[in-house]
Design a protein around this nucleic acid. Structure first.
Lengths: 223, 223
DNA sequence: ATACATTTTAAACGGTTGTTTGAAAATGGG
DNA sequence: CCCATTTTCAAACAACCGTTTAAAATGTAT
């Protein structure tokens, strides 16, 4: 429509395609076609594909993180339960939707891809740029779960992230199945509200996992 | 070593690289270099890369599924708890290790990638080939969790799969962090034994998630 | 209108991808 | 031993990738 928005058009097309197909599997030609701009303009405005990826994520984080910080500090005033902390993530997540219809989902998926695709620079970027918020998150959970060790918390939080990210990123396929099996539409919000109790239960779990000598089979390995 | 094993050499190299880097991001040239065979031999023996992917997964499934079936039927004889069912997956998982050191992990990661990468044909292959076992799994969980609906169970099982798969597929990055933060080695078995109680708690969760009117914000969307 | 800086554009760059080709080599049975 | 089948191999294929180039277009301040 207007003219000066080549950068924005690229960012919006890239967001959508990155979330749908992943970083590595989305070409600059796809992006520039979708955005109706010239191929070379990506390198002109962003320098490289890697920088574009970072810019796309930064655009989300600049909205997400301040809102999250406010919500977490609200929760910090009370003595927070795990559920309280988890619910603090919901408003910032959906505040992203002012960027576009499915931004909440796209953001979640991209965060996940930052781990599993070979994009270590993304994780490093987040950790250095938003260290304070991340430490607050850890501190809150540690306060709500005084009985579990830092290691255990570390792993449980990543299980939680995995549960959310996996469902979001395969929601295309899963939606098909869900629709076919019991004609249920699986909106991002519906999924989020389903996953919160699931995650909360996992985080709250009191089992100190008794290493389970189930049937010592050939389980003796590299530990 | 021997001579007739070109197919096997390809399969083994492909397994490892697919699990490490994903399907799309692993080239046939990488595979054939690692396997010390000619590039064209992949297409000669398997026809296409897609067929190779399927063959790699099939090789795992042919070992995994029968063992799983036996374990599940053992569990079916008792009145099974969720934990019982989950633990039934452990022996078949580690029985894969006779194919190679990290096969359990590779298998898990590949199953996950079958969803999140654009490999819908993999899911279809599994569903049609092992329909009976999948139905048994669903039936067992439904028996162990009589109070939750089929929809709810569907989603919780995918949350569970996500928790496992995400941690497995990003275990490279996560292992680095875990090692740096509290010098903990994160073997596949250690992760599996940590994730089982987490998943069990989530599956057993009794919250009928009260749609949570947290603060009706702009959460009104496509549901 | 002139001069300068910014932005857009088409074309080409070198590199990698999966796949195909056709001849050489290896293999195995009569 | 010989012939036919199977398997290997180097080379080339067309298609796609991210990036670069240099000229054209546009915008802006004098």
């Amino acid at each position: 429509m207007s003219k000066q928005n080549t950068k924005v058009k690229i960012l919006e097309a890239a967001e959508q395609l990155f979330a749908e197909q992943g970083f590595n599997h989305t070409s600059l030609r796809e992006i520039t076609n979708e955005a109706n701009v010239n191929l070379a303009s990506v390198n002109y405005h962003f320098g490289s594909k890697k920088s574009l990826i970072q810019a796309v994520l930064a655009r989300y984080l600049e909205i997400f993180m301040p809102v999250l910080k406010v919500e977490l500090e609200k929760v910090d005033a009370q003595t927070p339960s795990v559920e309280d902390i988890l619910e603090a993530f919901i408003p910032p997540l959906f505040s992203l939707n002012k960027l576009g219809k499915q931004s909440a989902k796209h953001f979640t998926v991209m965060i996940g891809r930052g781990y599993s695709e070979t994009q270590g620079h993304l994780r490093r970027y987040i950790v250095t740029e938003y260290e304070a918020v991340l430490k607050l998150i850890m501190a809150l959970f540690a306060k709500a779960l005084p009985n579990i060790s830092n290691q255990e918390l570390f792993w449980r939080l990543h299980f939680s992230l995995g549960a959310l990210v996996f469902v979001m990123s395969s929601s295309g396929a899963l939606e098909e199945i869900a629709m076919a099996d019991f004609s249920e539409q699986a909106s991002t919000q519906a999924i989020v509200h389903k996953v919160v109790p699931f995650i909360a239960a996992g985080l709250n779990s009191q089992t100190n996992y008794p290493i389970n000598q189930h049937s010592t089979d050939q389980i003796g390995g590299s530990l």
